[in-house]
């Protein structure tokens, strides 16, 4: 499609081929928890703890993990929707976390967000066209006619009919609502779209439609996705690289093939073994690695590996020291003493 070249003119002028589009370094997000009333000592919950990864142009990086692992908070912090405590997020060589006011506004146009719940992510009082218009109004300087035109084009791109622009969100189905959400994210022609579990609220047939739409859009416009999910099947379908998070830390990071074929961290292994399969080759092992118990209290951080108390292979060193994320092969990295 020729549109992609027209609408992202800065692609051609600036050469980003060597430099990653998004560089996240030591990102830390903490929330204060008051445990002992008004005058108690302030304690912090580290939702995201020292997370680093890169995102190359045109690539999809997935973050997987269980509920409470900090994957959504990571996404929100990168998009400046939650305040980061420490760390650096560089986009286009610009420190995204340091931007304010007008600069932030300009940068937001290049980094958009697709939300998890299509039922609460659309303002019920706005018509579909007004939802899509919102980022155009506040992030761009297009004229009224140009806005009209881009709304029409966006609706066509996400597969909605022109007449549906006048409808209210409650008149759409879940899948259609998510399409509106995608149109809104595409409105400013961003380079990076953060997808926070974009399909987990949809039923399976619709999930496939939305995922395929996302892939088509990525192909057409050269988009880069940061894809948050807890569904490994979805991640396998969508992502080039995958980061596995556990309790605010990345425990394993690698490209899709090596991570799925050769998981290193016991947590990743347990996650992969929990993926249900319809067809299994005869004789193939169906053994599931179960991890009993719950994640430990996130406020009192354990000294050692955070997975140690649930890990089937934990050793003495695991409860004493924190494993670093170390290279195994190529870009495949894991934070486990077993692999070092």
């Amino acid at each position: 499609m020729s549109l992609s070249a027209e609408n992202t003119p800065d692609n051609s002028t600036i050469n980003h081929s060597t430099e990653p589009l998004l560089k996240v370094e030591n990102l830390t997000v903490r929330f204060s928890v008051n445990r002992k009333g008004l005058f108690g000592k302030k304690e912090y919950l580290y939702a995201v703890d020292d997370v680093s990864f890169d995102l190359n142009r045109g690539e999809t990086v997935g973050i997987v993990g269980e509920s409470g692992s900090g994957k959504t908070t990571t996404a929100l912090a990168i998009a400046r929707l939650v305040n980061a405590h420490a760390g650096k997020v560089t986009m286009h060589g610009e420190d995204f976390l340091a931007l304010e006011d007008e600069d932030l506004r300009r940068a937001r146009a290049r980094c958009q967000f697709i939300f998890q719940d299509p039922y609460s992510s659309l303002n019920p009082r706005l018509r579909a066209e007004a939802v899509v218009r919102e980022p155009l109004d506040s992030l761009t300087t297009l004229s009224e006619a140009e806005k009209r035109e881009s709304i029409d084009r966006l609706f066509a791109e996400v597969g909605l009919r022109h007449e549906q622009q006048r409808l209210f969100p409650h008149q759409f189905s879940g899948g259609q609502r998510q399409r509106i959400g995608i149109a809104r994210a595409l409105a400013t022609r961003p380079d990076l779209i953060i997808c926070d579990e974009p399909v987990s609220a949809l039923d399976v047939a619709v999930q496939a439609q939305i995922l395929n739409l996302l892939r088509k859009l990525q192909h057409d416009f050269g988009l880069t996705y940061l894809f948050i999910s807890h569904d490994l099947g979805v991640v396998q379908h969508m992502c080039d690289k995958i980061a596995v998070m556990y309790m605010g830390k990345i425990v394993e990071y690698g490209d899709r093939l090596s991570l799925f074929n050769n998981p290193q961290h016991p947590y990743t292994k347990a996650l992969l073994s929990a993926v249900p399969a319809v067809y299994r080759r005869r004789g193939e092992s169906t053994e599931r690695i179960s991890i009993p118990g719950d994640p430990p209290d996130q406020i009192t951080k354990p000294a050692g590996c955070r997975f140690a108390n649930r890990c089937p292979m934990s050793m003495d060193v695991c409860t004493e020291d924190q494993p670093e994320l170390t290279n195994i092969t190529g870009s495949h990295r894991a934070a486990c003493f077993l692999t070092q």
Binding site: L81, A109, E134, L139
Partner: peptide
């Protein structure tokens, strides 16, 4: 709610979020 977060991601100003969203 997510649509307020969405409005912030769309760069809508605080004043507009309060009175319009």
């Amino acid at each position: 709610l997510e649509y307020v977060t969405a409005a912030r991601a769309s760069g809508v100003s605080n004043f507009k979020i309060i009175f319009r969203t």
